[in-house]
């Protein structure tokens, strides 16, 4: 399980993408992320979640995002990401 904490915004979105890049490669195609500590994401962060989901699908795995803050969840809902990413 990976834990996300803090904000994904203009200051660190590139770093976030670099940090999760190992999850997009390698043999381990199932990704389980605890989002309880993630308080904000901009569209740049969303972009990385979409890339993660694409990489998981391509490898026949599953990705689950857990305990998402309601305000962040709304952003996933508005953009249709809730339909393509499993949010528990």
């Amino acid at each position: 399980m990976v834990e996300l904490n803090g904000r994904i915004d203009t200051t660190n979105a590139d770093q976030f993408q670099q940090e999760v890049k190992p999850l997009m490669e390698g043999n381990q195609s199932d990704i389980d992320i605890d989002c309880a500590g993630m308080t904000y994401t901009s569209s740049q962060g969303l972009r990385t979640f979409l890339l993660l989901q694409k990489s998981v699908n391509a490898r026949g795995g599953k990705m689950v995002l857990r305990n998402m803050n309601p305000m962040v969840k709304e952003v996933f809902d508005i953009t249709g990401f809730s339909n393509i990413i499993t949010i528990l």
Binding site: S42, L46, T79, G80, I84
Partner: peptide
């Protein structure tokens, strides 16, 4: 505007900022 009904495979990466 992004087509928010597409599957993950078919969704384009980006174009979400102004939509939001």
């Amino acid at each position: 505007e992004p087509d928010i009904t597409l599957s993950a495979e078919n969704r384009e990466v980006g174009g979400l900022g102004i939509f939001l």
